[in-house]
Amino acid sequence: MTKLSLGSHPYLLGFEQLERLLERNAKSGNEGYPPFNIEQTSERSYRITLAVAGFRDEDLSITVEERQLMIRGGQAEDDAERLFLHRGIAGRQFQRSFVLADGVEVAGATLENGLLHVDLERAAHDKVVQTIQIKRA
C-alpha cells in the first residue's frame, strides 16, 4: 500500500510548503509545557492562551516566520542569592509553535495574571470567480 502525502495527492496542488510546515512543527519539541488553550473568539478570530506564571513580558518573545507562530520564554537565573528549601515552580525555558493558515495574522498579545494571550485574525476573503480564456494552439 502506497502512502500518499499531502503534497503528492493529485487534487491538492501547491500544498508542499504546508506539508513541510506540519512536519517541522511535529519535530519542534512541543511538549506539555507550558499548558495552553486555543479558542475561537468570533467567526474570524482566535485566541491562544499560554499559562506563563512567573514570566515577565521581557522574558517572552513572539515571532512569525514562514506562517509559523513561535512563542518562546526564558527567565534569567537569579538563584545565586536565593536559598530554596523546596522548588516546585518551574522557571524553565520553553518554545511553542503553531502553524498559521494563509490569511491568519497576529492581531496582538497581552500578558495578564500569568496568562499570555495571543490574538489571531483571519482576513475576510472576497469570492473571486476567474474565467480562463482558451487559446488555440
Rank of each mutant, 00 (worst) to 15 (best):
N37M: 06
I89G: 03
L13S: 07
Y33M: 02
E19K: 02
N25I: 01
G108Q: 11
S45K: 09
V64K: 10
I89A: 14
L13N: 11
A101V: 01
S28I: 08
E105G: 03
I62E: 03
A101I: 01
I134T: 11
L111M: 06
L18C: 03
S28R: 10
R24P: 02
I132W: 14
F55P: 00
L69Q: 02
K27R: 15
E105A: 11
L115M: 06
E39N: 11
S97T: 15
I134E: 06
L83T: 10
R92H: 08
D57L: 11
L85M: 08
V52G: 00
K3P: 02
G103W: 05
G54Y: 04
E19R: 04
S28C: 11
N37Q: 12
A137S: 07
L116W: 00
H125G: 07
I132E: 06
R122N: 04
F36L: 03
F55C: 02
K135S: 09
F94A: 00
L120P: 00
G7N: 07
E81H: 05
N113Q: 14
H125Q: 14
L13R: 11
S42F: 05
D102G: 08
E77S: 07
L13H: 11
S8Y: 09
R87H: 13
K135R: 07
E65H: 10
Q17A: 13
Q40W: 11
P10W: 14
A51N: 10
R67G: 05
N113K: 14
A76S: 07
K127S: 09
L50H: 06
Q93M: 09
M1D: 07
N25R: 12
